[in-house]
């Protein structure tokens, strides 16, 4: 969203760094935004590059499960909406890579790390889209969960990330509605359609709850991220917010949340049953149902496109040389 880090970060002495670090924290505490060229602790930079690039990878890998249904969308209206939505995910990946690049990482090195399996992306995209109802559930729940995560990021302390998220959130406002409309149509349709909707909800519910990350007492990064105002709500807080918003929407659809232990407490919060964190760990470790397929698809696109990128670079060089020669005449 901004130009690459223009000045290479200079190395200061430890004593100087301590002074700078406390000034930096004071700026964060005063809700000032940190911009690309500002001094920042190396760990802040590293945390952001990791988080923003993971977010970008998630958008790009996230194109695949939904892209799986573009050619089979059941009506022309749905086809156009789904294509526009998946295209948006690509755009969001681009905004995010650009935000990460302001911290001195190049998109190419970030993408290479993802293709090498060294960078993470959201675990949710390692589940398969089996029926059209999955497209509805993804829009309704996966995008719904993403929005819960992303809205607080619009106030993230790092300026380029916050600005990217503002744009993303604005554009995503149609995604969740699109998904819910698909669900509503299915639930008002034939018995077969309604069963399709319930089946999709059953398969996606628990993986969606896992999108918010491990429970607070087990999360590694939250403390410093909170101090730096990269993260403003805990995983459990966001998860709870999401569930409270979603349960009435499911009720309206006439669908059952596949959690027999789900109950409403006196404060009105819907309390979920135990989440299978072992499944989450397995998916993160590469053992989800689609991890290998997703990476293979991205690697193939990358490899198949290499000659195109090389051609474009070669042409640009030739043209620059020709222009130089012309100017010299």
């Amino acid at each position: 969203m901004y130009t690459q880090a223009l000045n290479s970060p200079e190395e200061g002495s430890l004593a100087e760094d301590a002074v700078r670090a406390s000034r930096f924290q004071a700026r964060i505490d005063a809700e000032e935004r940190i911009e690309p060229n500002d001094w920042m602790p190396a760990a802040y930079r590293k945390t952001l590059v990791r988080q923003i690039s993971q977010h970008a990878h998630s958008e790009i890998v996230g194109m695949l499960p939904e892209g799986n249904w573009i050619t089979r969308a059941p009506s022309l209206r749905r086809k156009a909406a789904l294509l526009a939505k998946v295209q948006d995910e690509c755009g969001h990946g681009l905004y995010l890579y650009a935000a990460a690049e302001t911290l001195g990482a190049s998109r190419e090195e970030l993408v290479d790390a993802m293709l090498a399996g060294k960078a993470k992306y959201s675990s949710i995209f390692n589940y398969p889209t089996l029926t059209w109802a999955d497209i509805g559930v993804i829009g309704w729940l996966v995008d719904g969960a993403a929005i819960m995560n992303q809205i607080p990021l619009c106030r993230c302390s790092y300026g380029p990330y916050a600005r990217a998220m503002i744009r993303v959130c604005k554009e995503e406002s149609f995604h969740q509605r699109q998904g819910y409309e698909i669900m509503l149509t299915l639930c008002r349709g034939t018995a077969e359609q309604k069963a399709m909707a319930q089946d999709a909800l059953n398969r996606w519910w628990w993986p969606v709850l896992m999108m918010f990350g491990p429970p607070d007492q087990a999360s590694q990064h939250s403390d410093t991220s909170t101090k730096w105002k990269i993260k403003r709500f805990s995983n459990d807080e966001l998860r709870q917010k999401f569930i409270d918003a979603t349960v009435p929407q499911a009720q309206y659809l006439g669908l059952t949340i596949p959690d027999p232990e789900m109950t409403q407490d006196e404060q009105g919060h819907w309390r979920h049953g135990p989440i299978d964190w072992n499944e989450f760990k397995q998916v993160l470790a590469g053992n989800g149902p689609c991890n290998r397929d997703r990476l293979a698809a991205r690697r193939k696109a990358h490899a198949d496109g290499a000659w195109v990128r090389e051609a474009a670079a070669a042409y640009a060089e030739k043209r620059a040389r020709r222009q130089m020669a012309q100017a010299a005449e």
């Binding site: 650009a98 690049e101 290499a306 990128r309 090389e310």
Partner: peptide, 30 residues
């Protein structure tokens, strides 16, 4: 390793009468 494609800054005039405003960046060969 992938060769880096140059980075560009994008400025957009959203309405007549307004100045071009920085809105983001992208990669392109030329």
């Amino acid at each position: 390793a992938t060769p880096n494609t140059p980075l560009w800054e994008v400025f957009i005039r959203s309405r007549n009468g307004l100045a071009h405003k920085h809105c983001g960046s992208l990669h392109a060969p030329d």
